[in-house]
Every structure is written in C-alpha cells, then in structure tokens.
Simulated assay, not measured.
Amino acid sequence: MWASRILSSATRAAPLANSALAAIKPARTLTTPMMTLRQSSSSTSAISYKRSHPHKRHPALTSDYLHPAPPSAEEAVSNILYNTPPIGMTRTKQRHIFNCLVQNEPGVLSRVSGILAGRGFNIDSLVVAKTEVADLSRMTIVLRGESNTIEQARRQLEDLVPVWAVLDYTGFKVIERELLLIKVSILGPEHVRAQMNSRSPNGWQLLQEDADEDMTPSNALRQTHGHLKSLTELSKLFQGKVVDVSGDCAVIELSAKPDRIDAFVKLVKPFGILEAARSGMMAMPRSPIYDRHELEEDEAQEEGSGVDASMLPPG
C-alpha cells in the first residue's frame, strides 16, 4: 500500500518538475545572449586586443644583408675610377729640389738668385741656414721647370766660386718639412674683416657691436670656446699645436710636408685667417738601410758555384 502511494506521488510531482524546468529553460535562453553581449562589449584584455590588432611583423634579415656578397670586378673598377681625380690634360712642370752647399759669406744668396732669375725660373721656396760647420751654409731651393733647363742652371750654379756643390734631389727619397705659423679667428668668419680693421685687441667688443638680441655674453662665450675646441682638435689631427690664445684669435704651429700644410690651410680658412707665415721647405735625403744577410747572399751569388759557364752545353 505504501509503495503504491509513493509511486502515485512521484508521478504527480513529475509533471510539476518538468513544467518548472520548462519555465526555467526559456529564462536561461533569454539571459544567455545578454551575458555574452556584455562580455564582448566590455572585454579589453590584452590577449583579445592583440588578437584583434596584430602587430606588424618586420621581415627577417636575409643572408644578403648579414653576409653581403663581394662587389664584382665591374663595380670595383667603377668605384675606383669615380674616386680617382681626373688627370689634367696639361702636365705641370716637374718640381726640382736643389741642395746648395755654399760658403758662409755675404753676397752668395744674391748671386744664386740672380742666376736663376736670369734664366726665367720662379723660385717656389728658398731657405738658407747654417750647418754644423761654421764656414758652410746649406741652401734649399725649390723650383719648377724642364729637366734639361734645370740641369743647365745647376751646372751654372756649381761654377760659382763660393758654391761647393749643388745636388738635385729630384727622384730621390727625401724628408720634406715646412714650418707654418697661422693666426686664426675664434669669433667667426663674419668678424674677420672687423678684426683686421680694428686696432682694439678685445674681441668681446666686436661681438657686442655686431651682436643680435639673442647674443648674450654667455652665448658669445660658448661660441668662441666652441671654435677654439674645433681648431684644437683639427690641429691634433695634423700633429700641430696651439701655441697662443687670446680673446679673439689663436696661433697654431704646424711642421709637416708642404702638401699637408696646404690642406691644413684650406681646412682652417672657413674660421677666418688673420695672418700666416711659412718658412719654406727644408729637405734632407733619407739614409739607406743595409741588411747584412742580403749583402752576404749577393756576394754568394756573385761568387757562383765554381762551375765554368763556357764548359756547359748550349741552352
């Protein structure tokens, strides 16, 4: 009896449970889209943002970039020809260096320069100085001309009585040095003309006269020190040095080859050159270096193996 009552109550409760579930399911189906809409509209996580906005990926470095191929012969030749200055159509006359050993007495310089001037030579450089011998002076002359005419002038100079010898160092390995003293402005190229015309050595007065509204004393100080620093670094590159500094200029000393001095003068010209003095070129031949082993090998080759070459078969 009790079992039949329990089964009947269970069958009665089943439709109620099914109806309750049926009532709940539509509610879930209605609320589920709203939940999903709220989550998608308010989602700002980094992962979803990166997925929706992918980063632009740069292409990987190719092997040509990491290990570039060497240039071809055509590219190398084109590069060399482009960087090589063109050869002039008219060749300049050859430069000759005379080293004259003369007697240390008055009038020798005028006689030597008179002979060269009579032949129409323009002397590029002439330096006369004493030597280790009291009665002997060394005269270094640099001039340009044809070899035949230069040789005739050398012989004519050697015929002079106070001249001991005249050596032509053309084609020999020589040490060339020239001394340069140059005064450069540190105020700027726009003040160079005012510095030359002004008798006042104070450069700050020139800066104040030509200064703009923005040119304060501090800016003027930075400008002059910036120019001085640039000149000092440039002098160190050419193995020179700044020997004097004032409020508006600096004096630089440089001893080098004439070509390097010409290059240095061109580089400091934008700063403003106030004065320049060059001593002229001095030259001295390099001493040869002898190797004892090479001399022994040469002597052994000259001695030979002791075989008479006339007894050998022809060929």
Rank of each mutant, 00 (worst) to 15 (best):
A194W: 04
L116D: 02
P33E: 14
A277F: 03
S72D: 10
E213C: 00
V133M: 15
S246T: 14
K173N: 08
T149H: 09
H191Q: 03
R286C: 05
A17N: 07
T140A: 00
A22Q: 13
R95F: 02
S40P: 00
D308A: 11
A69W: 05
E190A: 15
L21M: 12
V112S: 04
G118L: 05
V174F: 02
P59N: 03
R57L: 15
I273L: 10
Q205M: 04
P285T: 12
L116F: 05
C249I: 01
Q195I: 03
I123N: 06
H58E: 15
N18R: 11
R144I: 02
E299C: 09
A73D: 08
S235H: 10
H293P: 03
P162R: 03
L126E: 12
A23G: 14
N219V: 03
L179Y: 11
L206E: 01
T62Q: 03
M311S: 14
S78A: 15
K50P: 03
K130I: 11
E303V: 00
P71E: 01
R155F: 04
S19R: 15
A27Y: 07
P26T: 01
P189R: 11
E294A: 15
S185A: 06
R51G: 08
I123K: 07
G304S: 06
A22N: 09
S255Y: 11
I261A: 14
N122A: 04
D259L: 09
A22H: 10
L234W: 03
I289P: 05
I115L: 09
V77Q: 10
A3H: 13
C100L: 15
A309R: 08
L181P: 07
S48P: 10
V245L: 14
S9W: 07
M311H: 01
I97A: 02
S78L: 14
Q239T: 09
F264G: 14
I186W: 04
T36R: 11
T84L: 13
E253Y: 12
M34Y: 15
E158P: 01
R177L: 03
D244K: 04
I261G: 11
